[in-house]
């Protein structure tokens, strides 16, 4: 009897696992069919359903961005593409669609320095893994260099190179940490404005057209303190999407 019960539990858990793994594929495919049929709102709803279930992949956010772009929801589309780009920064398709939507809306494309572009090539998770791997390699090489009785030149060169790689990885990790600390904020509401103070009747500071990319400085209740170039103003949290990707 005990064995039967165990067997039943095993079968049930396997089937539950299978259902759980198949479900996102089905919904994803259904969303694609809706998109192909021109039913973009339905496609967005299905993608949102997957996101609400906790799924997080660049493909999901990319396709959602496409559907929103077809609905002319510029702000939400840009937010979705940016999230996809955070999950896969080297995907050319995502960057192309993001640029396309920005151009169509007449929004300026943010310019980044070579250093920022280089450090932005990997996701925070990838930088962390790289940093740990390089750290182990560096430690192993340095230990070997110390232990081998007669100091070997190639070992010295190897650990020096590993140290250089470690510094780069640490810089990348620090950059990723900084990006996580001050996440991107995308304006999703038409006519939103940044104000001088977190009050509804505060003085207008600068315009934030729908789809504008800002950087979060702090959050206080229903208001976000955001940075745009050198200006820092307040904007209602309901007018924006904060892009936070699980680490």
């Amino acid at each position: 009897m005990k064995r039967l019960l165990l067997l039943a539990m095993l079968v049930l858990s396997c089937s539950a696992f299978a259902a759980n793994t198949r479900a996102p594929d089905k919904t994803f495919e259904a969303a694609r069919e809706s998109y192909d049929a021109g039913n973009y709102a339905d496609a967005v709803a299905r993608y949102d359903e997957l996101i609400a279930d906790g799924w997080q992949t660049p493909e999901l956010y990319f396709n959602r961005g496409n559907a929103l772009a077809r609905l002319n929801e510029t702000g939400e589309a840009i937010a979705s593409y940016q999230t996809a780009l955070l999950l896969n920064p080297r995907d050319a398709d995502i960057a192309a669609n993001l640029k396309f939507v920005r151009n169509r809306a007449g929004l300026p494309v943010p310019k980044h320095t070579l250093l920022h572009r280089t450090l932005g090539l990997l996701t925070p998770q990838q930088w962390r893994t790289t940093a740990i791997a390089v750290w182990w390699v560096f430690a192993a090489l340095l230990c070997a260099y110390w232990i081998v009785p007669h100091r070997v030149d190639w070992l010295r060169q190897a650990w020096t190179l590993a140290l250089l790689a470690l510094l780069i990885a640490v810089a990348g990790r620090a950059y990723a940490w900084q990006q996580t600390r001050a996440p991107l904020v995308i304006v999703t509401e038409k006519g939103a404005q940044a104000l001088y103070a977190p009050l509804p009747d505060a003085t207008h500071f600068f315009d934030t057209p729908e789809g504008t990319t800002l950087r979060l400085v702090e959050q206080t209740g229903a208001w976000l303190r955001v940075r745009s170039d050198s200006q820092i103003g307040w904007i209602p949290a309901a007018s924006c999407a904060i892009l936070r990707v699980a680490r």
Binding site: T21, P24, D25, F28, E29, R32, Y35, G54, W55, Q56, T57, P58, E59, L60, F62, N63, N66, A69, R70, D93, A96, N97, F100, V101, A246, R247
Partner: peptide, 20 residues
């Protein structure tokens, strides 16, 4: 080439948001 790049295929490995 002045249009959106078409939808992507479903990912091979689905990832879920996890908290450490």
């Amino acid at each position: 080439g002045h249009d959106l790049v078409y939808l992507k295929h479903a990912p091979k490995h689905w990832q879920q948001k996890t908290t450490p």
